[in-house]
Design a protein around this nucleic acid. Structure first.
Lengths: 331, 331
DNA sequence: TTGTACGCGTTATCAT
DNA sequence: ATGATAACGCGTACAA
């Protein structure tokens, strides 16, 4: 489509061989200051920059990392994407953002990323089914894969996640200390392993406090309207005296949706009638309107770890990082 | 880094020439059913897929589009990114997400995208200074560029934006009809041309109603805390009887920050004491907690237009699309 | 330090 | 329909 200056053209203009031009652009190559200066000058004049495409073909490494995302409803994705792009770019990598929704077949997306020769694939909070990956004969030519902010049960695909056990223990301890006695849990998508883990730990630690009856609510997806619909169903079907006194939602966006419904449609108070806890520490959850008690994922640290694995600086293995309980008014 | 099967290897295994292999993967190429079947079979056995990198080098077109973003605080970016990735992918293109913040020099980012041979560059809501672009001698080897969701005054760089004149006219008409008499406007970043346009139109249409005294507020950036800080400064410095009765914020995230501050810290009511209007129609603005009156940008249509320009289906020129006034409780 | 073959995997074009 | 040659722009290995 466009025409760019090539190393060969620069070489001719500068009166050297094209390999000298290459060397001028290769850090640490053996070349005289004189030659280098001359090359760089004419290169600037001709508007020449190395063609990274050709370089990738020759070196068999592209510096591109595919980031798969399948759910754009959770605003939490945005700061993660910011951290990902910033840190990867600082490491000389660039993010290929790939939307994996229902319209776009997962296997095709993986093959496509592979065809583009990406250096790595990050499954960022996606609802990938394990079979999708195992079908592809991992390790057999596919780029290294990593799961970010979700569990992975797949052999050879390490995950980097917030420590769910620690998180739920702190949350339950806090709720118990506050005197709540009738807990409930709202899941966003029961099929996901992460969902089950958080819910399991929630139940497990309440059981340690002697509370075994946990109300279970389900939202169709991770969005405010889905959270609202879920709590609406629950409140409509449950008599006032049977209701939970505290509801933990699997993430902040569900919690916000639930809170709005509780206060707006049912005229109940948070936390007096029902206390609410979220997960993620989405910025607006901390606003005056919500004052949401939540748990912060160590975003930057998680991205750092994934980056190190991609760069081969640490062994690729599943790692859990501690987050931080954020107590506000809602619980 | 990894090893992939090549067309040559498949050719040897299938007992044909490598060009026959290529043809088997080229839609509409002349090849016998027999050969094609044989090639595809052995290709599947060897796990071969065409190397898009090599193809790009040969065809001089990568199918990659760089999307520049410099501000991840506005949750509005997320649905836009969803729309961008989905529509571009459906058109056979893939998004390179490039974070342009203060740590990353704008010119370098442009050159980097150029070096990667992207087919186009989308400046998505970025605060690019015009000089940054003109310095780069546009059209002189750089990929075609488009500005999305911001104005562009740059020759040869078309913009696709929501029609600000129409939007502000509808908004001011609505506010005037509601009986508000003392309007104010909060800008997110005075240097940006879009900011000025919205503010200008706001003032212009109020002037038509005979109101020439518009209070001007400034937020340091587009974020809820910045919006809160701005209104806090204003309310602290302005006596109750001198205050605005309606405040239009340049976008929803500023509006939400302002609303929280007004109600949470100052104990004032929205809209009774101060009415609030935003811009963008961010999902949570429509929640019970905020009930924000706002203006919806035609996201999907805007992305469609940019895509058509990239694909060369329509002439690249600045286009403004009509949005939609969303009236809720806040004004 | 500098110059020369050759290879990376594909596409375009021509000859068979 | 198939095979062969050249070209895309750069990197590596080796020779001068």
């Amino acid at each position: 489509m466009r025409k760019r200056a090539t190393a060969k053209q620069v070489a001719e203009a500068a009166g050297v061989s094209k390999w000298t031009v290459i060397r001028a652009f290769t850090p640490g190559a053996s070349i005289t200051e004189e030659s280098k200066r001359k090359v760089l000058e004419t290169a600037a004049a001709l508007n020449y920059t190395p063609n990274l495409l050709a370089r990738s073909l020759a070196t068999n490494t592209t510096g591109q990392v595919a980031v798969f995302v399948d759910d754009f409803a959770n605003p939490q994705k945005l700061p993660f994407l910011e951290s990902l792009t910033e840190k990867l770019q600082a490491a000389g990598l660039v993010v290929m953002l790939i939307n994996i929704n229902n319209h776009f077949d997962h296997v095709n997306a993986l093959l496509h990323a592979d065809q583009r020769q990406v250096d790595a694939i990050i499954l960022f909070g996606t609802a990938f089914r394990d079979e999708t990956l195992t079908d592809l004969q991992l390790g057999n030519g596919m780029p290294p894969m990593f799961v970010l902010a979700r569990d992975s049960q797949i052999e050879g695909v390490p995950a980097v996640v917030c420590d769910a056990e620690l998180a739920l223990r702190e949350i339950v301890d806090h709720l118990h200390a506050k005197g709540y006695k009738r807990p409930g849990f709202m899941s966003g998508a029961a099929a996901l392993s992460t969902a089950l883990r958080r819910r399991q730990h929630f139940a497990e630690f309440w059981a340690e406090k002697g509370v075994t009856d946990i109300a279970l609510l389900f939202a169709e997806k991770y969005s405010a309207p889905a959270g609202a619909a879920s709590i609406r169903r629950y409140l409509s079907e449950t008599a006032a005296q049977d209701r939970v006194d505290v509801l933990m939602c699997e993430n902040d966006i569900l919690a916000i949706g639930a809170m709005d419904e509780i206060r707006g449609k049912f005229g109940l108070r948070v936390p007096e009638d029902i206390a609410i806890v979220g997960f993620d520490n989405y910025e607006l959850g901390g606003s005056f309107a919500y004052g949401l008690t939540t748990y912060e994922q160590p975003r930057n640290e998680m991205v750092d770890v994934v980056l190190k694995m991609i760069k081969g600086k640490i062994e690729p293995e599943t790692i859990t990082l501690p987050g931080r309980l954020i107590v506000r008014r809602s619980a």
